[in-house]
């Protein structure tokens, strides 16, 4: 129920955002459309823990995302320095390691965070094994048992 409500709120907010007019008819039409989409989503059974992870909302927005943004800026700056360096100091490395997440959702969050951070790209994702291409040897070494791993695991437990 909570999931349906939050999905409805998100859909309705998106309608209002795209429409930008707040007249009676358009508000009602938006509510109707959001409801229809919600019914479709329930019939297709995509509104589950993975399809709409609303339970993560608060802890993800307040705890994980700011940290992830900080990491993105840090590694983005590092990659930019390496690109602009005339000698191109890169040492591309493939690394296999074992993530500590149990659920598919946790694995996807971890893999997406790895890919989102410049300098590392998750190539193969399976339960218990990630194959990651890193721009530098140091970046590849820091992947297993990283802080990101711990934070995603903590997020997953919520």
């Amino acid at each position: 129920m909570f999931r349906s409500l939050s999905a409805f709120a998100a859909l309705y907010a998106f309608w209002l955002l795209l429409s930008g007019y707040f007249t009676g008819f358009l508000l009602a039409a938006g509510a109707g459309s959001a409801l229809v989409v919600l019914i479709f989503a329930r019939r297709m059974a995509v509104l589950d823990r993975e399809g709409h992870p609303a339970h993560l909302g608060l802890s993800a927005t307040l705890g994980y995302w700011p940290w992830l943004l900080k990491e993105i800026v840090k590694s983005g700056w590092d990659v930019t320095k390496r690109i602009l360096d005339p000698s191109l100091p890169i040492s591309p490395t493939l690394a296999r390691f074992k993530p500590s997440q149990k659920s598919d959702l946790g694995l996807v969050i971890h893999a997406n965070s790895i890919t989102l951070t410049p300098g590392t790209v998750a190539i193969e994702v399976a339960p218990g094994e990630f194959l990651v291409h890193a721009l530098t040897r140091e970046g590849a070494d820091g992947l297993a048992d990283s802080e990101m791993d711990r934070r995603v695991s903590a997020l997953e437990k919520d």
């Binding site: 700056w77 990659v79 690109i83 890919t115 721009l135």
Partner: peptide, 13 residues
């Protein structure tokens, strides 16, 4: 593969 890292700088930062 290394070019992907450069492209991800454009996409994120």
């Amino acid at each position: 593969y290394t070019r992907m890292h450069a492209a991800s700088v454009v996409d994120t930062l």
